[in-house]
Structures are given as structure tokens and as C-alpha cells.
């Protein structure tokens, strides 16, 4: 028997309501109930960072958050990292330009982590800061170097998202 809970939250700018089992993870709700594909299930244990989303602007592993915990909160996923004309926002655009993407499975998580970091810290970032922020995002293809380059470049740009 599972207890169902009604929650209200904002998802990528849309105000939504949902009725979810109390034990359902935010990741399961986003992927299965709202058909989002950017938060990816890499481990389900908060170790790989592929499911990173922003809750109230903070990067969090959606697999470790219960859906009911986002009641009243603002949730953002990589799907919203676009400008109004549909083009990519500064961080994902920089990741693409720098060649940071190979298989890309980890990339939405990295884009979200970096976006949260850039919103919190104004001005150009140090590489060490970026590396530390990305510590929880595993990537097996790229060696991280180009992602760090990209985020550093994005932090120098005027318009950030």
C-alpha cells in the first residue's frame, strides 16, 4: 500500500500539480510522469550525477530526492537551457562549441551543474572551482578537460543563464 501525495511545483517555468506515491523519486516522476529525458538514470544512488536537476537553483541528484520534497519548489532540467528563440543557452552552447560532448549521456547533468554554479557565482570562474563543482558528475568519454574549458569560457561571457 503506498500513500499518494498531491504536490504543486514549477517545472521549467510551468506551474504543475501531480499526485505521486510518497516513495517515488523525483527522477522517476520527471522521466515517467512528465516524459522528460534529460535527467538520466546512470546509477540511482547519487554517485554519477547524470540525473542532476536544479531545485530552487541548487544542483541536486534527482534520484536521491523524493518527488514530494519538491512541493512548492522550482525545478529546472536541462530541457530548459534554451533561449526564447529555441537556441541553446550559454552553458550548453559552450559545451557543444568546446567539443565537450561525446556519447553525451552525462552531458545534461554537467550542463545543469554548471548552470547552477554560474548562477551562484558572478564573474569569471577559476578552473579549480569548476573542477570541484563537477566532481560529482562522472564522464567516461571525455576526460572532463573540454567541459571545464567550456564552463570557464561561459563564465566569461556577458549573457549567462
Amino acid at each position: 500500500m503506498s500513500v499518494e501525495v498531491e504536490i504543486r511545483f514549477s517545472l521549467n517555468g510551468d506551474e504543475l500539480r501531480a499526485t505521486v506515491p510518497a516513495h517515488r523519486s523525483l527522477l522517476a516522476m520527471l522521466r515517467e510522469d512528465f516524459a522528460l529525458t534529460s535527467p538520466r538514470l546512470g546509477c540511482g544512488e547519487g554517485e554519477c550525477g547524470a540525473c542532476t536537476v536544479m531545485i530552487g537553483g541548487q544542483a541536486r541528484a534527482a534520484c536521491l530526492v523524493l518527488a514530494v520534497e519538491v512541493d512548492g519548489a522550482e525545478v529546472e532540467t536541462a530541457e530548459c537551457l534554451r533561449r526564447s528563440d529555441g537556441s541553446l543557452a550559454a552553458v550548453p552552447a559552450a559545451l557543444v562549441r568546446a567539443g565537450a560532448v561525446q556519447c553525451g549521456f552525462c552531458m545534461p547533468g554537467i550542463a545543469v551543474t554548471a548552470t547552477a554554479l554560474l548562477r551562484q557565482k558572478r564573474g569569471p570562474l577559476e578552473r579549480r572551482e569548476i573542477e570541484r563543482a563537477l566532481e560529482g558528475n562522472l564522464c567516461r568519454c571525455t576526460g572532463y578537460t573540454k567541459a571545464i574549458d567550456a564552463i570557464e569560457a561561459a563564465s566569461r561571457e556577458e549573457e549567462r543563464s
Binding site: T77, E79, L88, G99, A111
Partner: peptide, 21 residues
């Protein structure tokens, strides 16, 4: 020359469909 992966935008924004999807 240096060319970003052609499908990179799709992959970074979550539009690429992997087995999970």
C-alpha cells in the same frame, strides 16, 4: 578543422533518445 560533434546539441539538452528513453 575543429568541428563540434554534429549531434552534440541534441545530446547536451536531453533530446537524444538512449535505450532508457
Amino acid at each position: 578543422s575543429s568541428v563540434p560533434k554534429l549531434d552534440a546539441a541534441k545530446r547536451v539538452i536531453g533530446d537524444a533518445r538512449y535505450m532508457d528513453d
